[in-house]
């Protein structure tokens, strides 16, 4: 199947997913925006009143963190089920097995851009003018997108064979939320834990985003390399697992 056909199917799947998602609920499209906002207000109340924190622009820090983390959660949850939910189609028409995982990533990316407009509104409300370093933000988002593809490829095929990968992955995501700098800064963690966590490309991605959008800091060359290599490593490993699992996947579904 040629590249243009693949591209058009990926796009169609992503758009269909979005349409169906929003047509099913009364508030429809608004939910994309409301969901992170409601979650934000809970966390904001907890972390400004109950716990002490010294983070500058905390509300914006939190919102940006949640939106970035949400993209990973949504992308992988949809991607994991991508093949199973389209099994009816995939057993009737030849469509490359990699496509559902990639199209789910695109769906998550589109929803992410919706949510970023809300972030824009918040910037205005807080009268915050982002530093020039915000120009590298799209690169950070691209890095996260590649990371999600790298996770979706293996997750989508493993899920056909081993159905409880869903539960395991959801636990990983829950744990990840607390272990990643979404609502705190890495510095408050003990050094040893920081050393382990820095291997997660997502930690670097969140740090880069916070620094570039709020604090006017560009990532160091060393950190950038670690993040890029880490992401490509996930993608490469994910692809190998995908290759191993994807043979005979249609026969097993």
């Amino acid at each position: 199947m040629n590249f243009a056909r693949r591209k058009s199917i990926i796009w169609d799947f992503a758009v269909t997913d979005l349409k169906i998602r929003y047509r099913k609920s009364i508030l429809g499209f608004l939910w994309t925006i409301l969901e992170p906002l409601l979650f934000l207000s809970v966390l904001y109340v907890v972390f400004t009143n109950v716990f002490e924190n010294k983070i500058e622009y905390f509300a914006l820090y939190l919102l940006l963190g949640i939106i970035m983390w949400n993209m990973l959660v949504r992308g992988t949850q949809m991607g994991m089920n991508g093949i199973i939910s389209r099994s009816g189609l995939l057993t009737k028409i030849y469509i490359p097995t990699s496509i559902p995982g990639i199209s789910s990533t695109l769906t998550a990316l589109i929803m992410f851009t919706f949510e970023m407009t809300v972030f824009g509104v918040f910037l205005v409300a807080f009268q915050f003018i982002p530093p020039y370093t915000i120009i590298i933000f799209p690169l950070i988002v691209i890095l996260e997108t590649i990371l999600i593809v790298g996770l979706n490829l293996p997750l989508s095929v493993i899920n056909v064979r081993v159905r409880d990968i869903q539960f395991i992955w959801n636990i990983v995501l829950h744990a990840g939320f607390f272990l990643h700098p979404v609502f705190y800064k890495m510095e408050i963690l003990p050094k040893e834990i920081q050393n382990i966590l820095q291997f997660s490309p997502m930690v670097k991605i969140l740090n880069f985003a916070h620094d570039a959008v709020l604090y006017g800091k560009l990532p160091t060359v060393q950190d950038s390399l670690i993040a890029i290599i880490g992401t490509l490593f996930v993608l490469g490993l994910g692809y190998l697992v995908f290759r191993k699992f994807s043979s005979r996947i249609m026969e097993e579904i």
């Binding site: 349409k19 169906i20 099913k24 009737k92 028409i93 469509i95």
Partner: peptide, 24 residues
């Protein structure tokens, strides 16, 4: 192999024709 593979119940007839046609 089976008609209407990939039809989406939540979408209109026209939308489905376009989607299915593109898949074909």
């Amino acid at each position: 192999l089976s008609l209407g593979a990939g039809f989406q119940l939540e979408m209109t007839a026209s939308d489905n024709v376009i989607l299915y046609g593109k898949l074909l």
